[in-house]
Design a protein around this nucleic acid. Structure first.
Length: 493
RNA sequence: GCCCCAUUCGUCUAGUGGCCCAGGACGUAGCCCUCUCAAGGCUAAAACAGGGGUUCGAGUCCCCUAUGGGGCACCA
């Protein structure tokens, strides 16, 4: 496809942590930029100084980097349209607001918050739609000048005609027409002099030559305002694309703060930094969120970033809301763990062992990676599954050592005779010790699984473990024998 | 309450008027493989919200209803 280069942006407001919803929006924008050879821009929409949380800026940057996204222009890397932080562009918006006033598209409003609250309350009581009543719209120019000179606080409102309709166009949804009487004279500059999103986003997108805006459907209600502002300036609109929002797993509504907290209790989260700690691969996150709202065909589901850049297409975006499905996420994580080079897996596993207080050496980690690879659902499971490789001793309980259907005395006898076999054998592989151990099982009237079970408990201290012989080889003969002897002592009690 | 959007298996989705008694994936159940646990293979149950049109023919187009979602701030 020979699409012209797209200039797109991800424009989060640093008022909260980066979650999968924002990440997906960023991803789609990024994919479009990379696919078309265009530019991806990061811009912070931080005009709300009350809700501003400076630390979330870094979290957003780190989270996007973790996913593998890079940008060509942004607050941290600069660019030809700097600054990329809206709080530093205050005067730009003011200048453009003045242009709207001069053109008759906007006006100064001296109504106090108290008056507006009262108005809203009144309208509420009368079951009328809550809208500005237009009091300041018709103020005489001299009056405005006088109140301005007196330093009276005021906002700037964008004027929407009372009559007629406003039609907007979204790539996924086609034309949407709104009755102007259902629209409001929105405030575009606050009394503190900062622009609101509605003005800032349009001025910036225009100045930064944005060609496509991919943002979630929560912006649909103010879409006509945005289109009207473009028209008032006489600017060409970008291509608008509004994918739907993510719904919580039950499908009932958006994720709330409280529910996010509850989710964390169950080892799940929608926040990127949490997902990293929980042992999810960024590759899996990307694959998972890409497919909530976009699809390629009727069977391909496994995607690496490079595939997505190649295959992504706007017309396969889905306009309906998607419920978050964590079990599918786990599935993708497993697939991507298995797709890793074992060296890479070993490298990525190391911090999780460290976090569990285990000093995992590289050599062991490397031999371990292949047998862990097909068992891990998340990386953070590794210490629990394979911690016994990095401990000097293990402490199996009696239940771990005595397999189902066997007595403690049988288990002790198995352990003793297995010890003899292990001591005599030249190696620890399936050939050299597996065959004699199976023979032992036959001789004692036990199943091979029961014999292996005794050894598994002795060597790993667990009832469930990676394959026994591979594990023993990694642990080494000396330590294996030591652990079997320790098990015999436990079984003798 | 008002405005807007959406509606295919429990969930994510394929489907752009005949190829669909609706395909894939996750999850679930069963079987196979197997030293436990996984991974893998096979099989099964499981959906076009309802009603009207348009058409020779509708999951696909239109209308209504219902349901779900989003929005109604000097937040973004």
């Amino acid at each position: 496809m020979s699409t012209p280069p797209a200039r797109v942006r991800f424009a989060p407001s640093p008022t909260g942590r980066l979650h999968i919803g924002g990440a997906r929006t960023a991803l789609y924008n990024y994919l479009l930029a990379r696919q078309t050879g265009g530019q991806f821009i990061l811009r912070f929409e931080d005009t709300d100084r009350r809700r501003y949380q400076p630390e979330t800026e870094q979290e957003i940057i780190d989270g996007l980097h973790w996913l593998g996204l890079t940008w060509d222009e942004g607050p941290d890397v600069g660019g030809p349209h700097a600054p990329y932080r809206q709080s530093e562009r205050k005067q730009v918006y003011l200048d453009y607001a003045q242009r709207l006033i001069d053109g008759g598209h906007a006006y100064r409003c001296f109504c106090t918050p108290e008056r507006l609250d009262a108005l809203r309350e009144q309208q509420n009581k009368e079951k009328l739609p809550g809208r500005y009543d237009g009091l300041c719209r018709t103020l005489a120019p001299e009056t405005v000048a006088a109140r301005l000179a007196a330093g009276e606080p005021h906002t700037i409102r964008f004027h929407i005609p009372e009559e007629g309709t406003t039609t907007v166009h979204d790539l996924l949804r086609g034309e949407i027409t709104f009755e102007n009487r259902n629209l409001d004279d929105y405030i575009i500059v606050k009394s503190d002099g900062y622009a609101l999103y509605h003005l800032a986003v349009i001025v910036d997108d225009h100045l930064m030559e944005i060609t496509h805006v991919i943002r979630t459907a929560e912006w649909l209600p103010t879409f006509p305002l945005h289109t009207r502002i473009y028209q008032a300036f006489g600017w060409q609109q970008p291509v608008w694309i509004h994918p739907s929002v993510f719904l919580k797993p039950s499908g009932k509504g958006k994720m709330s703060k409280r529910e996010s907290a509850e989710m964390a209790q169950e080892g799940q989260s929608i926040f990127l930094t949490d997902l990293q700690a929980l042992g999810y691969l960024p590759e899996a996150v990307v694959n998972w969120i890409a497919l909530m709202g976009w699809s390629y065909d009727d069977r391909t589901e496994f995607f690496q970033m490079a595939d997505l850049i190649e295959k992504f297409s706007l017309d396969k975006l889905n306009p309906s809301p998607a419920a978050i499905n964590f079990s599918k996420f786990d599935h993708f994580n497993g697939l991507h763990i298995r797709a890793l080079d074992t060296d890479d897996l070993a490298l990525r596993l190391k911090p999780y062992f460290a976090a569990a207080g285990l000093d995992a050496d590289d050599a062991t980690l490397h031999s371990l990676a292949p047998i862990l690879q097909e068992r891990l659902k998340t990386l953070d499971e590794a210490p629990e599954m394979a911690g016994f490789f990095f401990r000097n001793r293990v402490s199996p309980s009696l239940e771990d050592l005595v397999p189902k259907g066997a007595s403690q005395e049988q288990a002790r006898s198995v352990a003793q005779r297995a010890l003899d076999i292990l001591e005599a054998a030249p190696g620890l592989d399936h050939e050299t010790v597996g065959i004699p151990l199976r023979a032992l099982a036959d001789e004692m009237g036990l199943k091979a699984g029961q014999v292996f079970g005794v050894l598994r408990g002795a060597v790993t201290g667990q009832r469930i473990s990676p394959p026994l012989f591979e594990s023993m080889e990694i642990i080494g003969k000396e330590l294996v024998l030591e652990r079997v002897r320790a098990a015999i002592r436990i079984l003798e009690d």
